[in-house]
Write a protein that binds this DNA or RNA. Structure first.
Lengths: 221, 221
DNA sequence: ATGAGTTAAAAAATCGATTTTTTAGTTAAA
DNA sequence: TTTAACTAAAAAATCGATTTTTTAACTCAT
């Protein structure tokens, strides 16, 4: 349940996390070249921590770095969205099966808790990023006991990439509700340890999200 | 065939690549804390480019970064080796199947070329890292036309992680020969477009490498 | 107009020094 | 002996300024 002990923060780690969120939320236009000096002003950070964060984001795949010409936001494409969604299908399916095979009672409890919190957030007005935050946490919890550090790492990375597309448009409560029903059904299947059905539903779930993301990408024009 | 145009290099990108190689080759002890000032001297670079490289390596997974207490080399463990090998099985198997489904004539040619160069390097005395370099290139070529940028990216990362274990010991010509036979058999199956058999052999191939890596890890003590 | 060459401005990369935090060593009280 | 408090040294992080490279604007010959 507990998250890793909150590590002491540095200017570098703070700006990294801030920029990561902003990039995932589409605060920067796809393809845009980042003006480092402007960022420095905008976020009120020094050049050194800022550059360290940008370097990390590039290694993580949320920025493109070109020697001697700085950093830019990766472009979006249908082809890449398909790639990301397909990889999510494969990797999260795999992770879910393993989690169901290995998850213990504590996991079951965490899962119920995460799903409940998500549903509640959905009912109350979503002020800010609460739903998104809880949604991320739910998916994390779902696959957490899969037993592979690397698998979890890749999935996290794919989620961030996927969300660059999914969050292009405004929030749609109707879609959220549909997704939320899938979340609860996923929990039910996970608790029943029905990995076959769970995986199939996970596929559907990702596919639903994919259609949302694709529609938004196409509207985006 | 052609690699991406050699980008202009910066002190930062050069030291990144140098350190990446050295980390994969076990030039630093597992668990070791990096003394930034010493690195600065040793590699004759300034602090800024060095820190940028270390940040990227941490995001890539070849270093662990802890706020306010610098960087250290990740420890090695049987558990992690198993994880990495298992992930390689899954991801490279997937990639190989797709590559066989999609690879064109140019790919077939590249593959024959890469396998040939690898074999030749194996026969002549291996001065330096030539074999390792060609081996990496062979595996890259094998899965290149899989169609997924993200899949390729993850595989690359896993190779680097895997090699931290595999390269712990001295070079073993006998093993290399066995691996090399598998390489050639893989090419043959790929050209025959027999993805079932190819995937099975890929599994064996990774398993063979895994046993080498495990033995070295255990000897390492 | 077009394009090669030139140059000023802007941006990226790097340096050298300063500030902050941690670590390790020392002393003194329990 | 422990352990708490303090302190000096070391290391990490950050800052401010300099150097290098790219970009964009301009000139002039074709």
């Amino acid at each position: 349940m507990s998250k890793a002990i909150p590590p002491v923060s540095t200017a570098s780690s703070r700006i990294y996390e801030t920029l990561r969120k902003d990039l995932v939320n589409g605060q920067f236009a796809a393809g845009e070249k980042l003006a480092i000096n402007a960022l420095k002003e905008q976020y009120q950070v020094g050049l050194s921590p800022l550059r360290e964060a940008l370097n990390k984001l590039a290694a993580y795949g949320l920025l493109i770095q070109e020697n001697q010409r700085g950093f830019k936001v990766p472009t979006l494409s249908r082809k890449e969205l398909d790639d990301i969604a397909q990889m999510r299908l494969e990797l999260e399916g795999m992770a879910l099966e393993r989690a169901i095979a290995q998850g213990d009672a504590a996991w079951e409890a965490d899962l119920l808790g995460a799903a409940h919190r998500l549903k509640r957030a959905d009912i109350s007005l979503d002020k800010g990023e609460e739903w998104e935050q809880l949604h991320t946490q739910f998916h994390r919890t779902l696959v957490a006991p899969c037993g592979s550090v690397w698998l979890l790492r890749f999935i996290e990375q794919l989620h961030d990439q996927f969300d660059r597309y999914r969050r292009l448009g405004p929030k749609m409560p109707a879609i959220r509700q549909e997704l939320d029903e899938q979340h609860h059904a996923l929990v039910a299947l996970a608790l029943k340890r029905d990995s076959q059905a769970a995986r199939q539903l996970m596929d559907e779930h990702i596919h639903t999200s994919y259609e949302v993301a694709l529609a938004r990408y196409q509207e985006h024009a």
